[in-house]
């Protein structure tokens, strides 16, 4: 695209995030199969391959793939137990679904020419809202009005408590925003930076530096992909703990 122009660099860091229909050039309706659909499907496929095909041996001494699946299971299981307590384990399948989806979407997004579904606010926003609504409803169902005690800090002096309550309420409602933007922003930033470095590679003199920078950035992005999936999940666990035990 326009690289034949020798007088200047052309940056298209955001083009990789454009949602396009898979077939043809028509408008994007809600049901249109798009590149989003494709990469979401690939994430589902990857989950299926790792957790269903990979464990199909049911081996007592696990193969490599099976032990990866078991390690992931064990890690999330332990995280929920440590952060949310034993009661949190009832919601293990939901949290594990979130973790697996985000992890695989992030990692698939790192493939060249791919589309990163988790870099879109729409996707992460839905994930964060699911967590937010789920946790809030759960909190009210389990604790009733006691759930509001989350905002009433008993350890603070009485005069300060209303002020703190306002701050707590605001921070509670900012949760889904920061929860979703953290994930989308991290991936968006990393991918855009890689694209900017890639554009610099068009200049012969800078190209080696640029390529090295892309390699370094890519390694960093792999780390970010895993850590962001972990962070999203552990924050979900923290919110779940608040819903299960709202007392401060």
């Amino acid at each position: 695209m326009a690289t034949e122009d020798s007088t200047g660099l052309v940056f298209h860091p955001m083009d990789q995030f454009i949602v396009r229909p898979l077939f043809g050039d028509g408008p994007v309706h809600w049901y249109t199969p798009t590149n989003v659909t494709l990469w979401l499907a690939l994430a589902v496929l990857a989950v299926w391959l790792l957790f269903v095909v990979g464990t199909s041996g049911r081996a007592l001494i696990p193969s490599r793939i099976q032990s990866m699946a078991e390690l992931t299971y064990g890690m999330v299981h332990k995280m929920i137990e440590d952060v949310s307590g034993k009661e949190g384990l009832r919601y293990f399948p939901y949290i594990f679904t979130l973790f697996c989806f985000i992890l695989f979407a992030n990692m698939l997004g790192l493939l060249p020419k791919s589309f990163t579904t988790t870099s879109h606010i729409a996707v992460t926003g839905v994930l964060a809202l699911l967590v937010f609504l789920g946790v809030t409803i759960l909190g009210f169902v389990r604790n009733g009005a006691h759930f509001l005690g989350l905002f009433w800090v008993h350890s603070a002096p009485l005069a300060l408590r209303p002020v703190l309550a306002v701050i707590e309420v605001i921070s509670y409602f900012v949760r889904p925003v920061s929860h979703s933007i953290r994930l989308a922003g991290n991936l968006l930033a990393g991918h855009a930076v890689i694209k900017v470095f890639a554009a610099f590679a068009a200049i012969t003199v800078i190209a080696p530096v640029s390529i090295l920078a892309i390699i370094g950035m890519f390694a960093f992005e792999i780390m970010v992909a895993v850590i962001q999936a972990y962070v999203f999940t552990i924050l979900t666990c923290v919110y779940l703990k608040d819903a299960l035990h709202p007392a401060h």
Binding site: Y31, T34, V44, V47, F51, Y94, T97, C100, V123
Partner: peptide, 19 residues
């Protein structure tokens, strides 16, 4: 709309596969 629809489908699929 498109993204949310397909995301919900994908999440449901992953949830069913896993659970």
């Amino acid at each position: 709309g498109n993204q949310i629809f397909w995301l919900v489908v994908a999440l449901a699929a992953i949830y069913l596969i896993l659970s």
